[in-house]
Amino acid sequence: MKKLRVCMIGCGRISEMYAQVFKELSDLAEVVYAVDTDLNKAKAFAEQFKGCKAIIDYRECMEDNIDVAHIATPHYSHHEIAIELMKNKIHVLTEKPMAITLSNADKMISVSEEMGTKLGVIFQTRYAKGCTHIKNIIDSGKLGKIKCARSYLSWSRNKSYYADSDWKGTWDKEGGGVLIDQAIHSIDRVQWLVGSDIEWIEGNISNRNHEYLKVEDTADALVKFQNGCLYHLYATNCYGYDAPIELEIVGEHGKVGMKQDLAWVDIDGVEYYEMAEENSEVIPGKAYWGYTHVTQIRDFYISVINDSLVKIDGREGKKALDIILSIYESSIKNKRIYRDIIEAGGNHD
């Protein structure tokens, strides 16, 4: 089988995770380009792969039969890079968020469909074994009607985290603060697990401990799903350390949840067990990234090879972004945002 020719665009902090994944998936793909506006970063990444060329401008690789491009650049640039690549028949797997406005997310989806190119969005935490197990339980009906859900994120981001970047903690380049950067994964998991469209969203954002930023460092919201589930979410990066993320789904017959990578099930007080994520590999990077980038990326490569559907495509990747931008809008306007307004795009741009 011919290996996919892969390009890595953005060789910052998270690229160390990608480097490990590419080595594990060397039977499916070869990395032929490393791209970064800082050529030294691109060179450092490229040195790990035989024949990989380091470049500054991603457009240089578009004329060299690239099959898949991975985008791990600042948030605001995701849509522009993805659209140009897809128009050149290159499949794209981008880090979250896929864009920082719904209109740009929609443009990405439209180009993907028009060009027949694959578009995937990284939400690797869905692929955790415990999370997929919980999803199967919910979909089987064992919990009965879903009544409520919650997610709780309490992390720490100090001044140096933002000082080391020219885009983190900005509205125009990052698209927001703790919601769009840190809490987006837990929001995505909950909406996926609940499995229902949204009726309305009401939320509030504030900056309580990062006076040098204009974006939010704390947020809370209530999301009403069309199946009746009320989802309570809270996120802050004002805590003393990165505590384990907690989420819970409650149904008529019990509840299920996760504490970081530990999943638990409690049905009718009879069926109770815990399920830890098993991983034999030493994965570089932050522990809260988890160990499932490799699972999602392998899944994406197989969808390209077999021309099959992408599980977390643009439409799926847009759902968490939709919720986050609606929370921002609700807080700014101090009112509840209803689904018909959300579907129309609201003022998310």
Rank of each mutant, 00 (worst) to 15 (best):
7 C>F: 05
12 G>W: 06
27 D>K: 11
30 E>D: 14
31 V>L: 11
37 T>H: 12
40 N>G: 13
46 A>V: 08
46 A>K: 11
68 V>I: 15
76 Y>V: 01
78 H>W: 03
83 I>K: 03
86 M>I: 05
92 V>T: 09
92 V>I: 15
96 K>A: 09
101 T>G: 04
101 T>P: 03
101 T>E: 05
101 T>Y: 09
104 N>G: 03
108 M>K: 00
114 E>Q: 13
129 K>M: 12
139 D>N: 15
139 D>L: 09
145 K>D: 13
145 K>N: 10
146 I>T: 09
149 A>T: 07
157 R>D: 04
170 T>K: 03
172 D>M: 01
176 G>T: 09
185 H>G: 10
185 H>W: 11
187 I>S: 05
189 R>T: 12
196 S>C: 11
203 G>N: 05
217 D>E: 03
217 D>H: 08
222 L>N: 10
224 K>V: 11
227 N>P: 07
236 T>K: 05
243 A>W: 06
245 I>N: 01
254 G>H: 11
254 G>E: 06
254 G>N: 01
254 G>W: 07
255 K>L: 15
257 G>E: 06
265 V>N: 14
266 D>P: 05
268 D>Q: 14
278 E>W: 08
283 I>R: 10
309 L>K: 14
310 V>C: 05
310 V>P: 01
311 K>M: 01
314 G>H: 07
333 K>L: 13
334 N>S: 15
345 G>D: 00
347 N>Q: 01
349 D>Q: 08
